[in-house]
Design a protein around this nucleic acid. Structure first.
Lengths: 266, 266, 266, 266
DNA sequence: AATGAATGAGGCTTCATTCAT
DNA sequence: GATGAATGAAGCCTCATTCAT
């Protein structure tokens, strides 16, 4: 925080923090420890007209810095695209300074990789929990795909992730930076593990005579994942651009469930 | 009264037609058979003020060079991603100088929009041709989706397009540049027209009792398109990264056909 | 009720004052004694909507760095001409990196405008001080023109300014950039104010029968200013090109004084 | 010309020429050999809105190409400034192609030098003619300054020249290009000759007891020339920016005459 | 731990100049 | 003589990253 200060206002104490970025100034007013409202003054050209953005917000208290940065970055990457999102954007969104990001991450790409790795980790964890008690291939398949769907549709952050995954995965293969090779390897491994798990379950289902045997399991998996992502992407697009995509989250869920059922059956 | 006349302009012949009406005079200028622009002179009093109405159609230079640039850009955008592709990359790939690109396009974004607009135009054209003789919703749906699939799987350029469409569409909404607004509008319109066409056909099929009535047509369309794109994307990914995706073009085609059949049925 | 408070912000101390009126609360933020901005909160109900009135005064960072850049730019612009001066030249002259200039100014044109605006501001200030105690038109005219002459002949920077003003003023009218419109307006206003002041004094002198009545005040002013600028320009040219212009600063001053006396008299 | 073509319109034959530039298209319509009107279509972006500039003009018939280019360049340099004027601008204004300029001139700087050299040549010629029969220093001085004034105030081109001279002279000293050294030398010589002539006449007048002896002749010359240029510049500024400068050509002339008379007298 | 001023490499874009036609 | 497509050097500007505080 740039600075803090207390001043009595009305019947309670008003505390505020003050943060100057390159292109804007952020003031946060707190009452009772909660951020009371946030005032962003953009375009600090002297003697000029200004643009203000207000955000009345009561933030989570226990936000560790790392999580805060990742959350902000997810939003910014999704809205602007990785390349066009700047470190300054992320810092502004997170309410911190640009330098601090480099205390928690190697560089911008590392932030992106960390978002993806966190997501894949969460997905793996959820899958492990759900699959523990299941034996039927159909139930297993459903469980995994529902986990995928839920993580993406659960909240705004999930919608952002669809956009990010879509954009980022092709790049990950290309990463050359030595210091990020380990993270790159982990992501590719986790991703591959996920796909293999799906392929194996589909093959198992085909083998047991439960699923349609005429199709290549890999294509089937690709279709199922692609359909889910696309459907969720539509939801992201709606919230993001304001255009009506023609359906809501429940429609999306129903359709995905129906797709799985119909498509894998004999 | 009408007359025609040819005059050499640059490297191609300019042809124009001349037509005098009672109250105005119309000049039409043609290049390559296209009406280049149309000039209506309302009150032909010499040395006086005039009223003009223009209608411009196709003022562009060598189409082959333009196509060459677009082809190179498609490849580069697909391989590096739009954000990481530089103008120098495109020029190198096309075998021309960087400056020349700015003779044919406004800037990098304009190149991207042109690629997409050309693709959507081709798709629309192919759809119009195929749909002319069809009445059955199922046949219509199949025709459109096969057009889509064929354009994308037909050759390398098609595979590149999947990657580009995937990455670019979110950006298009964000375009603020004044000079690109018209192209942005056209793309969004063409895209919307395509989606509406699909939605209408699906709704028609549902109404006639041919398709599954329980699902929202927009979601169904989203799933079908998403699945096709994802499957084709897998093929691109294989050729591009060298990783085996686990299936080939024929598998992909078979699966898509089967998906359509199964998913839309009652 | 009022209170004051200090909080460190970046490298300087932020001071603010706090004032509660019956219907609103006013916060004033100061840096270096300047009111940084003023925030009026109309209805201080917590967690509710607010009404704010802002008045921004001087949001800028280190003034010394800004001045350093302007000084370097003045020199470079004068020696190379605005058009041929590069940002790299200015940065080199100021002993900083190119990027830093963009932290203090919008772009190259903004640097130029800032130089001119600063000069006009100094001139206005000097005029205000000198004119405070004068009533005689002749004395007033002399005071203003001597201020002008002194600011330009005082030191090297003054000589540079002649060259810059000469070159820049035609450009200022042409500025289209939205972000520079405000500065453009201010310069034109300040310039106009200066000319109007001169014209008014000349007209007053004519009216009182002190000055030559046969001539248009605007032309007279133009001649006086043009003569001064040209004479000073000669001095700049000498130091800059090494060519002997044939006179020195004292000659210049004597001639200007004599010109004023002779030219305005009846 | 790009192309020519004839078509009967009303009771007389309409001939038109057609010229495509990079950023605009120029049509010229002729009647009876005169350019009837000129239509400039800017921003030839396909499918887009256009900007039109009309110019109804009846050009001189015997325009040699070289003179045409210089005339166009004078206008463009004056309006945009040398650096920001492009060869394409000049070609467009002259109604020719960019390449043709390089058939008549070495490069852009050569065009500028040629404009100035032509002007100085005209001035020298006019001075030689006028001075032939004069012996009185006062008459000689008046004759030279009136020549200067007349050439600059005579027409639009003269006004443009004030602006160009103002901007260009400081640069001429800096020219390093080998191929332009000769022209540079000529300009500096002609300029020096002009100034020397003035200085000599003033000194002569002082010596003969006709002029004020208390001032340095060089400063006096500088003041007289500076005043004239500034006054004429005001007229240019008015026509160019549309702002009212507060006086007209006759006011300017009267004031200049009066200045000379008053300033040089004892 | 946190800040944000400072750096400078690298991309986009313009435009003087060339040259095949 | 005349054209204008093509070239590519050079400048502006952005922004990831560093580092003194």
């Amino acid at each position: 925080m740039g600075s803090e200060c207390r001043a009595p206002i009305g019947q309670f104490v008003l505390r505020f923090s003050f943060l100057r970025h390159e292109s804007c100034t952020v003031l946060r007013f707190y009452a009772f420890g909660h951020a009371f409202f946030m005032l962003t003054i953009a375009a600090a050209t002297p003697y000029n007209e200004f643009e203000f953005n207000f955000k009345i917000c009561i933030p989570r208290m226990e936000d560790s810095k790392r999580a805060k940065i990742l959350e902000a970055a997810t939003k910014v990457f999704a809205k602007k695209g990785f390349q066009y999102a700047t470190i300054a954007d992320i810092a502004r969104e997170a309410g911190i300074s640009t330098g601090l990001i480099y205390l928690y991450f190697e560089n911008k790409l590392d932030v992106l990789l960390s978002i993806i790795l966190d997501f894949l980790g969460n997905l793996q964890k959820a899958n492990r929990e759900k699959l523990a008690n299941l034996t039927c291939p159909k139930e297993k398949l459903l469980a995994i795909l529902r986990n995928f769907e839920e993580l993406l549709m659960h909240d705004e952050q999930g919608l952002y992730l669809v956009r990010i995954l879509n954009e980022a995965l092709p790049h990950i293969v290309m990463i050359k930076e030595k210091s990020l090779q380990e993270k790159r390897r982990q992501i590719l491994l986790a991703n591959r593990a996920l796909l293999d798990m799906l392929d194996t379950i589909i093959a198992e289902g085909q083998h047991k005579g439960l699923f349609d045997r005429s199709l290549n399991p890999c294509v089937m998996r690709q279709i199922l994942c692609g359909a889910i992502e696309r459907v969720v992407y539509g939801l992201f697009y709606t919230t993001y651009s304001g255009d009506d995509i023609g359906y809501q989250a429940p429609d999306a869920h129903a359709a995905v469930m129906r797709l799985i059922e119909k498509f894998i059956q004999k």
